[in-house]
């Protein structure tokens, strides 16, 4: 159950720098730990994050096992047009979690 949160300002002026904040609940299991019986716990992390702004990719990031659990990612974006900001997190098992928010640019 990956729960994702995304925060984008509702309104912005054209050309403004806005801050996009995102958080996803995820165990980010590194693959280095062992369970009580000594068996390796398989790696399960989010290995890729993409942000699309009106369908256009504006950020892509590859993540490694050292990223903490429940990773928080904030970044800046120039507000150029009204539309949707969408963040897609890709899990090791291939599943994707998507969260999007609308922004009105005037």
């Amino acid at each position: 159950m990956a729960k994702a949160r995304l925060k984008v300002p509702k309104k912005a002026k054209k050309g403004d720098i806005i801050t996009v904040k995102s958080l996803i609940s995820h165990p980010m299991e590194t693959g280095q730990r062992k369970d009580k019986k000594g068996n390796k716990i398989p790696r399960k992390i989010i290995n890729n994050v993409v942000c699309n702004y009106n369908g256009k990719k504006v950020l892509e990031s590859n993540w490694a096992p050292a990223i903490s659990a429940n990773p928080y990612l904030a970044f800046n974006l120039r507000a150029s047009e009204s539309g949707t900001v969408e963040v897609i997190w890709t899990d090791d098992d291939g599943s994707k979690t998507t969260q999007s928010a609308k922004i009105t640019v005037s």
Partner: peptide, 12 residues
């Protein structure tokens, strides 16, 4: 309140 991961549990 946004960066605080505890809010995942508040929401849930």
């Amino acid at each position: 309140d946004f960066a605080n991961p505890g809010f995942i549990w508040v929401e849930s």
